[in-house]
Design a protein around this nucleic acid. Structure first.
Lengths: 162, 162
DNA sequence: TCTTCAAGTTGTACTATACAACCGACACTG
DNA sequence: CAGTGTCGGTTGTATAGTACAACTTGAAGA
């Protein structure tokens, strides 16, 4: 994709053509990925939507947290999180414990069932990813992972994730 | 994330812990990215949703194609593409030309307005990405871009993109 | 011709999401 | 202690994107 910067007929800032090409490619490929992600996730695990999966994962990683924390971390509206959590509670994957310190907050925790489902989906997803990345040298894997983490760590409020 | 492979309590195949950790991270970060992408894209360009944007992009790249081709390329249902295209036609960004060879098919083309909007959104997105990636060394940018291309080139039908 | 297939459209339903309005519980501050 | 603001969360409403199934129309073969 050496001519990426000309695809839409605009010119690029001078002196950075390699970097510009790379930025263009990153933008395009991230977009392609994003376009496909949700749908295929749904096909893979009808049990757990992509959203539910990431929410449960965060809960496990943090060993419980508030709905507000989830909303902040995933840049979601609190109403969205509220409904997602309600659904997860309804299906018994999550439980709420009112914080005795502050009766406004509900600390969310995985239930045993939630932990089990999460593990199962994680394993299935990992298998798919591993297959997909099977022929990558380990060095490339770790570098790719580091790049993604760095990319996602950007603090800006939705400045360029899509 | 050095203990990623233990997060769900399962064991991993022996002899690949660094690679497994990386795979886990890639999976997680790609997921986070996908989770955010659509929403922020919508916030950035109310004119053109992420879906419309990718569709227009494909149309420009291929210089016109059929709705079925779009569906296949993006792993979307034909009904979805049908509605998306209808919307794009309604807003005058795309036009249909019935194939004289086969009256079933409609070859889709960008209109002048479509080309203009696409260029404008592409530029705006590129700016955002460039800002976000501003402090990355060029070498990292090109490597990251190459990794993403390689990742997305995987031919499997939605095996692990989410 | 009759059947089968391919391209697209339309009906219906569901998920994810945002925004706005709201409620209840803290936390200050006068 | 009352008044005011703030924070965590829920609910009402609207929208995008999507799938699946049923259907229409046109093309291609048996």
């Amino acid at each position: 994709m050496t001519t990426a910067e000309m695809r839409d007929g605009t010119t690029v800032t001078p002196g950075g053509s390699a970097a510009d090409t790379a930025v263009e490619t990153i933008q395009r490929e991230m977009t392609v990925f994003a376009r496909r992600a949700r749908a295929s996730a749904g096909r893979m695990h009808p049990e757990l939507t992509l959203v539910s999966y990431t929410l449960l994962g965060h809960l496990e990683e943090r060993d419980g947290c508030r709905a507000t924390d989830l909303a902040a971390h995933y840049a979601l509206d609190k109403s969205t999180v509220s409904r997602q959590v309600a659904a997860l509670e309804r299906t018994g994957l999550v439980e709420r414990r009112v914080d005795p310190e502050d009766h406004r907050v509900q600390v969310l925790h995985l239930t045993e069932a939630g932990r089990r489902i999460l593990a199962q989906v994680t394993e299935s997803r990992r298998t798919a990813f591993r297959e997909r990345l099977a022929d990558w040298p380990e060095e490339d894997l770790t570098r790719f992972a580091a790049y993604l983490e760095r990319y996602n760590a950007w603090p800006g409020p939705g400045t360029g994730e899509g």
